[in-house]
Design a binder for these strands. Structure first.
Lengths: 345, 345
DNA sequence: CTGAAAGCGCTAACAC
DNA sequence: GTGTTAGCGCTTTCAG
């Protein structure tokens, strides 16, 4: 890696002092330097192909102009749009993002966190928040700037950017009720995620409000495999698709819903004729699934934008805490939801 | 952001010089320091919660321990696994990745490149290579370390990690030939990507070799929308699904293939009964599409791993050029490919 | 084995 | 307006 030209080289060529070059090449100090010298310096810089060293500047200013992003797994389709949203806000402001995957494991999360702190990131966007989260609490106590996205950690004053879980689930249940479903199964996510809890509670409340028989089974993970296993078991136990069973499934997210679609078709059940399925998140390609998925659309890109905004605002204002922003979510009806089977409506 | 503990604080507490602390806290120099002092220093560091400043170290060593990743769009499902592969190789070696999206636009790519160079990344993984690529040539001339992944730029000596495009397409055509298809349409990607060209040429060669009527239409983009438009048009022009038309489609990638599936179903054609479709890449959820997609599996995670490996090796060896690694790709047969319609086999 | 000193490339007072 | 002078936090000769 070459590119060894420094501010000293530019100074020498322009016949001025390093300090002057620094002032000249910084937008907010360039008016302090004589227009003629300014031009001379700019020219020298261009001729030499000078590229400012952001690392050195960061060391001096003690600001690295980088922010860390902690997420479970980039291959989960909800995260790429969030990351792009974050990037789209940061990039024009001179920041870049360092993304680290934790695979939901504490040890990896700790390692990633340490690596980011060693690199002196100016703040963190955290998509791995859990209900009881020692690492996050520790970060807060050490006055590390952070914003939570998609999930929160109750009792922590960090800002958070979340989707409207309650509204989304309420809309899903209302939609199924209108289709005359009287018994619905909810595939809930792990209880350590606030988002899972919010959706599960909202499901129960909505069912009670409408006099619908709502049943909840909890999934150990938010994955396709877990959803498939859960629904296979539900079918075996006659919890769904039987006279006494549920005629619809509301899944805590689209991966579980996709697992449900797989299980139904492998068991010879049709969707939506035998069982309706509703997801949550509206991930990419949800409309292209074997049965196009009815699901709640969540504006992930915007979530990333808002998270980055709150983070930078907190850094500037030197405040750790902040507001919780809740973005609207709304149901997108596709083919996976239909009228309850005759006789069970 | 607090965490203001420096090496000087540790030195003071342990009653030694900064230099000694530095030696003590570095794995490859710690044997130079007396075991007793070593222990004392480690203890002091722990008590103070000392976290080494990688940025400062980088400035001194002129190595940032970061590498940049230039890709078109993280929401394209081929890239997350590549990024994770890169990360999995870098992370245990103390490096982190800075990911930048270019959306296929030169201006954004240039801006991202500049931003990465300003941050003094130690090297670049480039997934945006094009046939004639001024930026890459410039980077090479400036002795910037880089490795190309997924696409290459002919004439540039940078190492590259690619999939077996020729083998994959050959296998696809062989598969369709075995299903008695005698006329096949290829949806080719933009000619500026080596990968598109390789697949397109391989398609033509394979068809010639088997006496199959192979027709190629070129797509302006590797997107679902482009694939859908192309196939709609092909249907309108009776280029497929007619007596004289093709009974199968080989798409340059899965997004085009998905567009094809959408177009077919919107035009009332059945897949695979009327038209078979074969993709390339085997992106996540390809098996869950409205018709589970027959496609060529490419080991993207491994591609990322190999790219990162070649990059770090080049950095250590101070070599810019390197080998081209070609990873095996093989056909995964699913429901989207079936026997040619009777009468046209 | 440890201390001293210099310096990576830059910025920010403070002089002049 | 511009030069001078200190460092930001760390590593790395060179002495001793």
């Amino acid at each position: 890696m070459a590119v060894r030209v420094t501010i000293a080289d530019v100074a020498a060529r322009a016949g001025v002092h390093k300090g002057t070059v620094s002032r000249a090449l910084n937008a907010d100090t360039e008016q302090l330097v004589n227009p003629v010298t300014l031009r001379r310096i700019q020219e020298a810089a261009r001729e030499l192909g000078y590229v400012p060293n952001v690392v050195a500047r960061g060391l001096r200013r003690s600001a690295s102009m980088t922010i860390g992003v902690l997420l479970p797994d980039l291959t989960n389709p909800v995260f790429p749009p969030i990351v792009r949203g974050i990037e789209s806000y940061l990039s024009p402001r001179g920041y870049t993002a360092l993304v680290a995957n934790t695979d939901g494991r504490d040890s990896l999360e700790r390692a990633a966190y340490t690596s980011l702190v060693q690199r002196r990131v100016d703040g963190l966007v955290i998509a791995t928040a859990r209900v009881d989260h020692p690492l996050l609490r520790e970060a807060y106590e050490r006055e590390v700037h952070a914003v939570m996205v998609q999930r929160a950690s109750p009792g922590l004053a960090y800002p958070a950017v979340l989707g409207d879980d309650v509204g989304g689930v309420a809309e899903s249940v209302a939609h199924l009720a209108a289709l005359r479903h009287r018994s619905i199964l909810h595939l809930a996510g792990p209880g350590e995620f606030t988002t899972s809890r919010a959706r599960s509670d909202a499901f129960t409340a909505a069912c009670v409000a409408r006099g619908i028989a709502g049943r909840v089974v909890q999934s150990p993970a938010l994955s396709v495999a877990a959803g498939e296993a859960l629904v296979r078991e539900a079918i075996a136990r006659e919890v769904i698709a039987q006279d006494q069973g549920a005629s619809a499934i509301v899944a805590a997210n689209d991966l579980l819903a996709l697992g449900a679609l797989r299980a139904l078709s492998s068991q010879g059940l049709r969707c939506p004729q035998d069982v309706s399925v509703v997801g949550f998140n509206d991930i990419a390609f949800a409309e292209d699934f074997r049965t196009p998925l009815t699901t709640v659309h969540v504006p992930f890109h915007e979530m990333g934008v808002q998270a980055a905004r709150l983070l930078l605002e907190g850094i500037v204002a030197e405040r750790l805490d902040g507001e919780t922003v809740r973005l609207p979510a709304s149901l997108v009806v596709r083919a996976s939801s239909g009228p309850a089977p005759a006789g069970r409506a």
